[in-house]
């Protein structure tokens, strides 16, 4: 059981999305990775506001660890940590600006509960495997959650890590794939056949669960149900979720918001609340 109700989680998700819109707008004409940040909001909210134990307390050895392997979704992580009261308001206002601690890809930061740096795709699962292995060796019951993108699964290192997780039976690492179906150059299934994700993970011996990645009910259930086999949750999501003009739109992988779009996006999000 988690402490917050589904309605509360939904409200937090909306606040997270508004934070993401604010950060994107603040980034100015340079733009920001809005699409992939929006698609994983419910996943991060479910983890940080429901499932994970003390994720913000990097100094506590029994905390659950989270690794944002799809580092370009950093805004979603910053926003969730902001809603959790870890990252202060002024940092969010300053995010993505020159000299900010919060850049387009997360940088390891103990004070803000950011476990590892991200940005170079394909690396997070290996780091998660190493952490999980070390935790098992110390009989530490903490879990490691790693969020990958479906496009990111093009990277060979992801499957090197899958081998290791399977070989060492690391059921204390939970892999989540944010399957929003889009990557830089277009549809994931057109770039490389992403429709085989489920079969690929199954062939590595993982317990694979496919869910609606925007449904808190399904996320909480999938994240709570655990067995002795390493688990992968394939979360079907919508890139740019919550903003009509950004949903499922390739150009919103990384883009800037005009004044008009900014107000429209906020308006839509507030109305959905």
């Amino acid at each position: 059981m988690i402490e917050r109700s589904i309605d509360e989680l939904k409200k937090i998700a909306t606040s997270v999305r508004i934070d993401i819109v604010e950060m994107t707008y603040n980034a100015g004409k340079r733009g920001a990775h809005l699409g992939g940040s929006m698609s994983c909001v419910e996943i991060l909210v479910a983890l940080y506001m429901g499932i994970m134990k003390c994720p913000e307390a990097v100094q506590r050895s029994d905390r659950d660890r989270f690794i944002l392997s799809k580092g370009h979704a950093a805004m979603a992580l910053y926003a969730v940590l902001h809603q959790k009261g870890i990252i202060p308001e002024y940092e969010i206002k300053n995010a993505l600006k020159d000299g900010s601690l919060l850049c387009e890809h997360p940088k390891m930061n103990d004070s803000y509960g950011i476990e590892v740096s991200g940005g170079s795709l394909g690396q997070g699962l290996s780091i998660g495997a190493g952490m999980a292995l070390a935790l098992k060796k110390k009989n530490n019951n903490a879990n490691v959650y790693v969020l990958l993108g479906d496009g990111e699964c093009n990277e060979g290192q992801v499957w090197e890590a899958a081998h290791t997780i399977q070989h060492y039976r690391l059921n204390n690492v939970v892999t989540i794939v944010d399957k929003n179906g889009l990557q830089f150059d277009g549809r994931t299934k057109d770039v490389q056949d992403g429709n085989r994700l489920k079969e690929n993970w199954e062939s590595y011996g993982f317990d694979v669960v496919e869910i609606d990645g925007h449904s808190f009910e399904q996320l909480i259930r999938a994240l709570s149900d655990r067995n002795s086999i390493p688990k992968v949750i394939i979360a079907n999501t919508v890139k740019g979720k919550g903003i009509s003009f950004a949903e499922n739109a390739t150009e919103w992988h990384s883009n800037f918001l005009t004044d008009e779009q900014y107000f429209k996006a906020k308006d839509e999000l507030k109305k959905s609340d």
């Binding site: 290996s126 780091i127 495997a129 190493g130 952490m131 999980a132 292995l133 890590a161």
Partner: peptide, 8 residues
């Protein structure tokens, strides 16, 4: 990556 995760 695995070595680094263990080191962390």
């Amino acid at each position: 990556g695995v070595a680094s995760g263990m080191a962390f």
